[in-house]
Design a protein around this nucleic acid. Structure first.
Length: 883
RNA sequence: GCAGAAGUGGCGGAAUUGGCAGACGCGCUGGACUCAAAAUCCAGUGGGCUAACCACCCGUGUGGGUUCGACUCCCACCUUCUGCACCA
């Protein structure tokens, strides 16, 4: 076989060769040539096309798709993308049918703001940015099936985003069946008879609804800001105020319990699961009614510490609480009004930032403690949040530090109703300064009337007991509460999915139907905000106002658009069947790629930890709605999740333009090659760790790749080295080869890419020393390297004489027999200190090892004639002689 | 304040059913090749002590503990990073 010399000659005359000839021509190792050559080859041969082949086991490995910003890819992107690419390539070689897609989350404010300043249409900017991202991603040699690419701003895509929104809109949550159901199936209570009443009742139960809620309004920007955006703009000098506005909301709270419970089904980072649990924030307590003096009704408070109810010193309502106006006495009205006004001006941020000092005002009203009939004053204070619980709390200064602070500030009494269990601590606890909040180690005191007593009970028992008692007396009830709030789902922007709902003059409305979707964005040229709190869509007369074809009525479209989260809530489903025009995803394909039941879902999902809560919670919510209707087969969308760590600048701080420490992947690819960038990013350290960039490190990896190449081929001619021959491996070579295959396979499975690379480096270091290099070892090494450095591996694979793409070869299997060692080096210790090392037969038992140790001259020297008290021998490890 | 993660050479990191700490890479030192440089190759590289890379001693954030033996397990503490933050 002499193909190589023949081929080597060919490189001088390959100006117009066909791709096959081109692929078979070699050249000196030059990463730019090699990478361009194989990327072209892969593309032209559709090497990464995925079909739904149900005869093979499937593997769905997904990246969090990027927002295509004008800045292009940064070095953080290739980190996660390389990791998933390695897994995808490995799984293909292992015989799996792999779905490994890529797309673009392209709606969003930055593009719209760019349009506002330049007048260039966001669609055009988006198109250019996507083209640039695609070029960059392709230059890195990722094995995506580009036939399946998704763009969330494509009407054919957002048609289905709108469709899912309408599915949610047309649903209510059946608490008994614990699932979403069509709104038509909602039982209407008999007292609602007119069509308008029925519509209003249905609207109050829909999973998507309109509400008037306070939002962060920025006058200069002409838009509402998300809570997490407020900080950024305020620091730039903009003012943000709280303003009640009409908004679309999604009732994610209906799914709180399932979102919490089903976290047990997924294989996610512990910290992410904890974050989601905290975000959902489940607590168990009681609602208790405090009757009002001089009124027929009462105040319902929510408390997690009903065991401290005998210690109530006052009641506090949130300033926005609806009862405030009714119960405030004339003498207090002025003070209450002023306080409410001052609170309204504060943003949520200010309310919490200035949290050290408690503020509040007495309403003049009094309430009755239902357990002991004590009369307590009713205050308002901004430390009580209107949107949580019942918007009112019972103040127990001895059991809650916040209540204690409040009582101290306003000179309210501090009745002591809890005590540390530990008598010493109880004696020394200074209740005039601190509440005792450690309820796991507390007992109730001073808590009795003629009817009941909690005295002496530990707090947890007292809590259960008093709750049951309140319930039996009709004074309160057990209550489960979540911190999770409904999802604010509208933005006053142009560049987002239109909400496909129209409003008629008579106050009714109509949602579009499937045959009317997508509701496309109109082509506009003025992207400036309206200034009225409406999106630029409100200015597009011909789009907003129209006569509805289906009803013949004059109608107006919703002008708010959806938030950026919407498109990313379900994109993983669209990748399965991206061109389907009749459904968001074909049922059979969905079942194949997602699997079914509680163990199904995307097999591996990799992305940044910054999405640990919102994106992952929103996507889970939408998935569960789809699950309730049978559109998807698994309760959870993402089976295994992994977060890649942040890559810092070379100076070990976060990369930023202002610091000038930003690394552009294009430059790295240009200078060192995509393979070097890929392997370096994997070699830097554990995938999940935050770690600094190192140009020297990339050079080191580039050196390794060149060494790998030179181990097999002549770097000047690109031909196979004569040293590579069909010879048997020595036992040592065999051991190294098979431990390398084992290590690389296992490390890819566990995403420990850094140690897999280290092992391949060891392999190259050793085999480079060998004068004659066994062909079989070289080939199997190239197969191991292929998922990491696909370009150079493909080149070497062909230099080794193969014609099929390395991406379609099976991954090598290691032979356990080759890993059996006949001799091992063990350590001999005296009093746990290493004193000698000896090579012994691997199967030597404890007794044999003991004999070897005791006869060892060095050990005898340290024993100095003394008799060992004890000898510990661990086969294949060590012998420890104790004297 | 609460929750989570993590502290190992000059640097990135490796090794945890408890068993040779520092694999691999970077950097550095010396050497080969070269007129010279780059590239490449070879050797060395935790600290101390020492004439000695003979031996010995110390060493995985700090202080205790368990054990024949601890980077690994237990207790207390310190530091850093990330998220949440008056959620009653």
């Amino acid at each position: 076989m002499e193909p190589c010399s023949f081929i080597a000659l060919k490189r001088f005359s390959c100006n117009k060769v066909s791709i096959e000839q081109f692929a078979l021509s070699f050249m000196p190792y030059n990463h730019q040539h090699i990478e361009a050559k194989w990327q072209k080859f892969w593309e032209e041969h559709n090497v990464y096309r995925t079909t739904t082949d149900t005869t093979k086991p499937k593997y769905y490995v997904l990246d969090m798709f990027p927002y295509p910003s004008g800045a292009g890819l940064h070095v953080g992107h290739p980190e996660g993308y390389t990791a998933t690419d390695i897994v995808a390539r490995y799984k293909r070689m292992k015989g799996f049918n792999v779905l490994h897609p890529m797309g673009f989350d392209a709606f969003g404010l930055p593009t719209e703001r760019y349009a506002m300043t330049t007048g260039i249409h966001p669609a055009k900017v988006t198109e250019e940015n996507i083209a640039n991202f695609t070029r960059q991603l392709k230059s890195l040699g990722f094995s995506y099936d580009w036939e399946r690419v998704i763009n969330t701003t494509d009407p054919e895509y957002y048609k289905w985003t709108q469709w899912i929104f309408l599915l949610i809109y047309n649903s209510w949550y059946d608490d008994e069946q614990q699932r979403a159901r069509p709104i038509e199936e909602l039982p209407i209570p008999p007292e609602y008879t007119t069509p308008l009443e029925i519509q209003q009742y249905q609207d109050s139960k829909r999973l998507a609804y309109i509400a008037e809620i306070p939002v962060n309004w920025c006058e200069e920007l002409g838009t509402v800001l998300a809570n997490e955006e407020v900080d950024e703009w305020v620091s730039k000098g903009y003012t943000v105020e709280r303003r009640p506005m009409r908004q679309w909301m999604l009732r994610i709270t209906a799914y709180a319990e399932r979102l919490l419970r089903d976290l047990s089904l997924v294989d996610w980072p512990h910290s992410t699961i904890e974050m989601q649990k905290n975000w959902i924030g489940k607590s168990e307590g009681a609602e208790v009614i405090f009757p009002l003096v001089g009124h027929d009704d009462g105040i319902t408070v929510y408390t997690t510490r009903p065991d401290t109810i005998f210690g109530v010193s006052y009641i506090v309502l949130a300033p926005e609480h609806p009862l405030v106006d009714r119960i405030t006495t004339p003498e207090q009205r002025k003070a209450v009004e002023e306080y409410k006004k001052s609170v309204a001006l504060k943003s949520d941020l200010e309310r919490t930032e200035l949290a050290k000092e408690k503020t509040g005002v007495f309403t003049g009203a009094y309430a009755i403690n239902p357990v002991n009939n004590a009369t307590v004053p009713v205050w308002i204070a901004d430390y009580v949040l209107a949107h949580y619980g019942t918007g009112s709390v019972m103040g127990v200064p001895s059991g809650d530090q916040r209540d204690h602070d409040f009582a101290q500030t306003f000179g309210l009494p501090i009745p002591i109703v809890v005590q540390p269990k530990d008598p010493k601590l109880a004696a020394s606890w200074d209740f005039s300064r601190y509440a005792f909040e450690d309820y796991d180690n507390a007992i109730a005191v001073n808590s009795k009337t003629e009817n009941i007593s909690l005295d002496g009970m530990d707090s947890n028992t007292a809590k259960k007991w008093i709750t049951l008692w309140l319930e039996s007396e009709g004074l309160g009830k057990l209550k489960v509460q979540y911190k999770l709030r409904d999802w604010l789902f509208s933005r006053q922007r142009y560049w987002g999915e239109p909400v496909p709902i129209m409003f008629f003059d008579d106050g009714t409305r109509r949602a579009l139907e499937l045959d009317e979707l997508p509701l496309c964005l109109p082509d506009i040229h003025d992207f400036q905000p309206t200034g009225t709190g409406e999106s630029p869509l409100a200015k597009v007369e011909g789009w907003v106002n129209f006569v509805d074809k289906k009803t013949g009525k004059k109608a107006r479209f919703e002008t708010n658009t959806m938030p950026q989260w919407a498109g990313s809530c379900w994109y993983y489903l669209r990748f399965i069947d991206p061109k389907n025009t009749t459904a968001l995803v074909d049922k059979a394909q969905e079942q194949y790629w997602m699997g079914t039941g509680e163990h199904g879902g995307v097999d591996l999902y990799v992305g940044g930890a910054e999405h640990a809560v919102l994106h992952l919670l929103y996507a889970r919510f939408w998935h569960k709605v789809l699950y309730d209707y049978g559109y998807v087969s698994t309760p959870e969308p993402f089976k295994k999740l992994f977060h890649q760590g942040l890559i810092l600048g070379e100076d070990a701080v976060k990369m930023s333009k202002s610091r000038g420490n930003v690394i552009n992947p294009d430059d790295v690819v240009q200078e060192y090659g995509a393979d070097a960038l890929r392997v370096f990013e994997m070699f830097m350290g554990p995938l999940e760790a935050t770690k600094p960039w190192s140009t020297k490190g990339v050079e080191g990896v580039a050196r390794f790749l060149h060494r790998s190449y030179r181990m097999i081929a002549d770097e000047d001619t690109g031909t196979l080295l004569p040293n590579v021959q069909d010879v048997e491996l020595t036992p040592e070579q065999s051991f190294l080869l098979h431990s390398t295959i084992k290590k690389v396979s296992e490390d890819i499975e566990s995403l420990s890419f850094n140690t897999a690379v280290a092992q391949m480096m060891i392999f190259v270091n050793e085999f480079t020393k060998a004068e004659i290099r066994p062909r079989i070892a070289m080939e199997q090494f190239v197969l191991c390297l292929a998922p990491f450095a696909p370009h150079v591996s493909e080149e070497l694979w062909h230099i080794l004489g193969h014609t099929r793409s390395v991406t379609q070869e099976p991954f090598p299997e290691y032979d356990p027999a080759c890993l059996v060692q006949h001799e091992v080096e063990i350590v001999l210790q005296v009093n746990s200190k290493v004193r000698a090392k000896v090579v012994v037969p691997a199967d030597a038992d404890a007794l044999a090892l003991e004999m070897i140790a005791l006869q060892n001259p060095t050990i005898q020297k340290f024993l100095n004639g003394k008799t060992p008290k004890k000898v510990i021998a661990v086969p294949s490890k060590l012998v420890n002689v104790i004297v």
